[in-house]
């Protein structure tokens, strides 16, 4: 027997499971080879050390801890048991197909023409939609200036005297407005009669002083964005026009809590 053949037999030798021939060959070799004898002694000592290791007693609170964990997982288990009771048996391809269909449905819903809000919220979509003649009036999105109006290049330019005021307001309060917009669905319509050019400017100044945003639409139409809480003040301001006549629509706009869902109201002021 060679030295290299000795060590693989150590465990069987220790377990006394070697065949008679292997046992004779091994013991003969160990008798004449000091190196392998030393290796075997070290192997034996190692086994002796390992077998002398004592086991540690488990902690006393092991079982209560298990019970506590089981109680904590009770809800999860019940949910899982319900799922298992439903006996789902989906293969991976079927699950993948369902997932794909769900994603596709979500995409189609998102891009559907029915989703007016989605279109209106995108300025590029607004322009495109309007160019195709679409008017979104049936379903109002959240009140934001850009969401309420689509760009039009077909209207007359805004009065040059009012423009600086309006642009100042836009820059100050709500950001840029590059071109006039067409009104789609304001909350309040105001028709102002017999108000001259100076009167218009004065009115705009008053509204700006109150931090309301003014956006010019055409030469005789402006939009005003004001907090709903300022509605009373808005009516009072219109009332201070004195002999000049104004018409407020709808009539409910005369009430303080005109529309409790909205924080910002859009008023369309048309000068006649």
């Amino acid at each position: 027997m060679q030295c290299t053949e000795v060590q693989p037999l150590f465990t069987d030798f220790a377990d006394n499971t070697l065949s008679r021939e292997e046992l004779h060959a091994l013991t003969d070799h160990l008798r004449i080879c000091r190196t392998c004898t030393l290796e075997w002694r070290e192997f034996e000592q190692t086994l002796s050390l390992v077998h002398s290791l004592e086991t540690f007693p488990p902690p006393a609170d092991l079982l209560p801890g298990i019970r506590a964990k089981l109680a904590k997982r009770g809800l999860f288990d019940r949910a899982w048991a319900l799922i298992e009771a439903l006996n789902f048996s989906l293969s991976i391809p079927v699950a993948a197909a369902i997932f794909t269909i769900a994603m596709l449905a979500g995409f189609l819903l998102k891009t559907s023409p029915l989703d007016r809000t989605g279109i209106l919220q995108s300025p590029i979509a607004q322009v495109g939609a309007l160019q195709q003649g679409e008017m979104f009036t049936s379903r109002q999105p959240t009140i934001t200036p850009n969401a309420m109006f689509a760009v039009s290049h077909n209207e007359e330019p805004f009065d040059s005297n009012l423009a600086p005021l309006a642009l100042t307001a836009m820059t100050t309060h709500l950001g840029p407005a590059k071109c006039p917009h067409r009104l789609l669905s304001p909350d309040i319509h105001v028709l102002l009669e017999n108000i001259d050019h100076d009167g218009q400017i004065a009115l705009c100044r008053e509204m700006l002083r109150r931090n309301w945003q003014i956006r010019p639409i055409t030469s005789n139409l402006i939009l005003v964005y004001l907090p709903q809480a300022d509605l009373r003040d808005f009516r009072a301001l219109l009332g201070r026009l004195g002999h000049r006549r104004f018409v407020l629509m709808p009539a409910a706009a005369a009430e303080t809590r005109f529309d409790s869902d909205k924080k910002v109201l859009t008023a369309a002021l048309r000068f006649q």
Binding site: Q7, P8, F10, T11, D12, E39, E42, F43, Q45, T46, L47, L49, V50
Partner: peptide, 13 residues
């Protein structure tokens, strides 16, 4: 097991 015991023996040499 034999290899593991031999490795252990070498560590405790």
């Amino acid at each position: 097991l034999n290899r593991a015991r031999l490795a252990l023996k070498n560590r405790l040499k």
